[in-house]
Design a protein around this nucleic acid. Structure first.
Lengths: 162, 162
DNA sequence: GAATACCTGAGTAAAATACTCGGAATTAGG
DNA sequence: CCTAATTCCGAGTATTTTACTCAGGTATTC
C-alpha cells in the first residue's frame, strides 16, 4: 500500500461527493471549484474510482457522479487502493523474486505492514469522515464559495469573501 | 507521513545493519551487495540517517556504519521519517493554508491518519524485525552470497553476472 | 440542436526516485 | 609514508510518478 498525495486527492474528492450526495449527482466541475483540483485530473481519478465500482456516473446536463452504496460502506482504504496503481507494492509482483530470484529482506515485513495499515484504513468509512465536526465546518465555507462563484457567472457581481 | 519505496529501502538497509552489527561497523558496499541497492543511493540514504542520529559512521578501512543505540530503540517510523523529506505531508506546511488561504477538507483528516500510522510504525522496532524467523532465514542466504562473491573477488577474475 | 456533463487519449511540466560519476577527506595496515 | 578502504560531498541524469492541459468524442436533457 502506497500512501501519497494522489490518494489524498482521491479521498478529498470522494468526501466532497459524500457531503453533497443528498441533492442528486455531483459534477466534477463543482468538486474542482470547491476542492481546487483540476477538472482533468479529477476525470482521471474518477475513471479509476468508477472501474473499482466506488462511484457511478450519470451523463448529460444535471449529471455527475454518485457513490455506489452508502457512505458507511466505502472505506478510505478502498479509495486509496483504487487510484494507487496497486501492485508494485513489494516490487516483485507477489512472486517474491524482488532481488535476483530471492525474496528480499523486507518482503514479508512490508507485506505485513501494508496489510495492517490497510486494515486500519479499512475501518474508516466516508460516513465516519462526514460525521466529523471539523470537516462539516470546512465544508460549509466551501459551499458558500461555490455559490458565490456561480452567481458570478450569472452576472450579478458578488464579492462576499473579502 | 509518506509511505513509498524509498522508506522501504531505508528500512531494508537498517535491518541489514542490525543483522550484522555484532562484528563491528558495516560498510555500505556490503549492504549494497546483500540488498541489491546501489552504493551511491545508500550513501544518500545514510546521510539522512546520520543527520537524524540513527547511525554513526566510522571512516577508513574496516569502517562503516553502526546503529546509534540498541535495535530496540530504533523504530521503523524513525527510519521512514528520516528519509521521507517529512513535511509537505499536508501540503500547507502546518499553516493550514493549503487551498486559497483556507484549510483544505482533508487537512485534519490526513494529519490524524498520518499520526495513527506513525504511531503504529513507532511500535515496531528493529529488534522486533530481527527476531522474526522469516527475516533471519533470508538473511542467512544473503550472507552466503556475500561471502561467495567476496572469495571470488580475491583473485579469480569474475564474470558471473552475465 | 444546443448546452451540459461524462469519457477518452495524447501530450507535458515538474517533482520524486533511483541511480551514476568524480572526486575529496579520513584512517587502518603494510 | 603509501596505499587501499571507506565515508563524505556535490553535481548530473534517466526513469517514473504526479498533476495537469488540450482536443476532441459521446450521452442526455431541455
Amino acid at each position: 500500500m502506497r500512501l501519497t498525495t494522489k490518494g489524498r486527492y482521491a479521498v478529498t474528492a470522494m468526501l466532497d461527493l459524500a457531503l453533497h450526495s443528498d441533492k442528486g449527482p455531483v459534477s466534477l466541475a463543482d468538486i474542482s471549484v470547491r476542492q481546487g483540483i483540476s477538472l482533468s485530473y479529477l476525470e482521471q481519478l474518477f475513471a479509476r474510482l468508477r472501474q473499482f465500482k466506488l462511484v457511478k456516473s450519470v451523463r448529460g446536463p444535471g449529471g455527475g457522479y454518485q457513490l455506489m452504496g452508502s457512505t458507511a460502506d466505502i472505506s478510505v482504504a478502498q479509495v486509496v487502493d483504487a487510484v494507487s496503481e496497486s501492485l508494485d507494492a513489494t516490487r516483485c509482483e507477489g512472486k517474491g523474486n524482488c532481488h535476483e530470484g530471492e525474496v528480499c529482506l523486507t518482503h514479508h515485513l512490508w507485506e505485513n505492514l501494508s496489510e495492517q495499515i490497510h486494515r486500519f484504513l479499512s475501518e474508516i468509512s466516508l460516513a465516519d469522515l462526514v460525521a466529523r465536526k471539523d470537516i462539516r465546518a470546512v465544508s460549509e465555507l466551501q459551499n458558500l464559495r461555490l455559490r458565490s462563484s456561480q452567481s458570478h457567472a450569472d452576472h450579478i457581481v458578488v464579492s462576499e469573501i473579502n
